[in-house]
Amino acid sequence: MTTNTSTRFRSTTQAKRSRRSAQDRRVALLFLTPAALGFLVFLIWPTVRGIWLSFTEYNLLTPEKFVGLANYERLFSDPVFWHSLGVTVQYVLINIGLQTSIALVVALLMHRLTQSTLLRGIILAPYLVSNVVTAIVFLWILDVQFGVANQVLEWIGVGKIGFLSDETWAIPTIALINVWRHVGYTALLIFAGLQMLPEDVYEAARLDGAGEIRSFFSITLPLLRPIMALVLIMTVIGSFQVFDTVAVTTGGGPANATNVLQLYIYDMAFGRFQFGYASAMSVALLLVLGIITFIQFRLTRAGSNDMN
């Protein structure tokens, strides 16, 4: 009897539970479908199609023609592709290096000195300006004839600099323009991470006689590691995809000095109608980014946390 009642009882709760979980599943599906559809239509499908196109010759107007690995063979012997990759890496190193260091300092200052939301707003402001607008404004500021920056350089006796027209200056200049725009956003991400750090660890350190600098290197940096890893992975991917600032300020010139990979891919596709080869380069960029992200993930042990 007892066993009977208990099984009956169990079976009814089970039934109830499975009815509830079936209901839950329906609701979950309802909520998941739009996102999943968007993911399929706007991410998975274009990626699969892009990979397919990388094995074809395609100009948008006539049907694609399968050419096997020809596009990838061309990629390996295309000096402009390798040059563009080199220029892009140079840009990423300057951009990410400066941006992350400055953002870390700004975040620490915000964390230690002020909680003002107004200040946080101001620091984030450049990020709210569109990339194209930023680029156009800097194009004028740095203009050799009429630019404010060059007027100032003249006054202090340095002389004019072709920030965007000189081969050696162009990439660093573009990298700095984007540092200006993104540093606030990066700082806020790090700032959020800083706020999660437990105060008692610092208290203990202070009791043990650790100063500001010692606390920073022994507590803040190690504990911040997962946040920094996330910030780096996100900003490096974004940095590799630089396009608009270059397209507006230099258009890849002078003499390919700023022809970053995205710009080259764009021109190959929409300027030269070689969508197959452009797709192959995009796939190559995808692979490069995948590898870099994997390495970053492993090196920074982004998945683990020192606070446990």
Binding site: E167, G252, P254, A255, N256, N259, D267, G271, R272
Partner: peptide
């Protein structure tokens, strides 16, 4: 034409800019 421009354009910029 587009390929010719893509190859020669930067080369001519090189003559003037550099």
């Amino acid at each position: 034409g587009a390929d010719v421009i893509a190859l020669l354009g930067p080369a001519f910029e090189d003559l003037w800019a550099n």
